[in-house]
Lab assay of single mutants.
Amino acid sequence: MQYKLVINGKTLKGETTTKAVDAETAEKAFKQYANDNGVDGVWTYDDATKTFTVTE
């Protein structure tokens, strides 16, 4: 399945996608991506759209 990440950071904004077997695996990949880019915020997930959002 394909999952999307929407980033609403202080210095980084945008979107990225990943393919993963489940939401938990996608979340780990997205959190690593956010961490690598210095984004630390509040996470939400919408199962209907398979979209994670992180807001600083």
Rank of each mutant, 00 (worst) to 15 (best):
M1F: 14
M1N: 14
M1D: 15
M1R: 10
M1Y: 14
M1C: 13
M1S: 12
Q2G: 06
Q2S: 10
Y3C: 02
Y3L: 02
Y3I: 02
Y3W: 06
Y3V: 02
Y3Q: 01
K4H: 12
K4I: 13
K4D: 03
K4M: 08
K4L: 09
L5Y: 01
L5G: 02
L5M: 06
L5A: 03
V6L: 08
V6D: 03
V6T: 05
V6W: 04
V6S: 04
V6Y: 07
V6E: 05
I7V: 09
I7N: 01
I7A: 03
N8Y: 12
N8H: 11
N8W: 13
N8K: 11
N8I: 15
G9W: 06
G9R: 04
K10H: 12
K10W: 09
K10M: 11
K10N: 10
K10G: 10
K10L: 14
T11E: 11
T11D: 10
T11L: 11
L12C: 13
L12R: 10
K13T: 10
K13G: 07
G14Y: 15
G14M: 14
E15H: 11
E15P: 05
E15M: 12
E15R: 07
T16G: 05
T16E: 06
T16K: 12
T16S: 09
T16Y: 15
T17C: 11
T17H: 11
T18C: 13
T18P: 03
T18W: 05
T18V: 14
T18R: 07
T18G: 04
K19S: 13
K19Y: 15
K19I: 15
K19L: 15
K19W: 15
A20G: 04
A20H: 04
A20V: 04
A20W: 04
V21F: 12
V21A: 12
V21H: 13
D22C: 05
D22T: 07
D22N: 12
D22G: 04
D22E: 04
D22M: 04
A23S: 09
A23R: 15
A23C: 12
A23D: 05
E24R: 12
E24I: 11
T25S: 13
T25K: 06
T25Y: 06
T25R: 08
T25M: 12
T25N: 09
T25D: 08
A26R: 00
A26H: 00
A26G: 02
K28T: 08
K28M: 09
K28P: 02
A29L: 15
A29I: 15
A29Q: 13
A29G: 05
A29M: 14
A29P: 01
A29V: 15
F30V: 03
F30M: 03
K31C: 05
K31E: 03
K31L: 08
K31N: 04
Q32W: 06
Q32T: 08
Q32A: 12
Q32N: 08
Y33K: 03
Y33L: 05
Y33N: 02
A34F: 03
A34T: 08
A34V: 10
N35L: 14
N35F: 15
N35A: 15
D36R: 08
D36N: 10
D36L: 11
N37Q: 13
N37A: 13
N37E: 07
N37Y: 14
N37R: 15
N37H: 15
G38M: 07
G38R: 07
G38F: 06
G38W: 04
G38D: 07
V39L: 11
V39F: 09
V39A: 04
V39N: 03
V39G: 02
D40P: 04
D40E: 12
G41S: 02
G41C: 02
G41T: 02
G41H: 02
V42R: 08
V42W: 09
V42D: 10
V42Q: 09
V42I: 11
W43N: 00
W43K: 00
W43P: 00
W43D: 00
T44F: 09
T44I: 07
Y45E: 00
Y45Q: 01
D46L: 04
D47P: 13
D47H: 10
D47R: 06
A48R: 10
A48W: 07
A48N: 11
T49F: 04
T49E: 06
T49Q: 06
K50Y: 11
K50E: 03
K50M: 10
K50G: 05
T51Q: 04
T51P: 00
F52E: 00
F52H: 02
F52V: 01
F52K: 00
F52S: 00
F52N: 00
T53D: 03
T53H: 07
T53K: 05
V54R: 00
V54I: 11
V54N: 01
V54A: 03
V54P: 00
V54W: 02
T55D: 08
T55K: 05
E56Q: 10
E56I: 10
E56N: 05
E56P: 09
E56W: 10
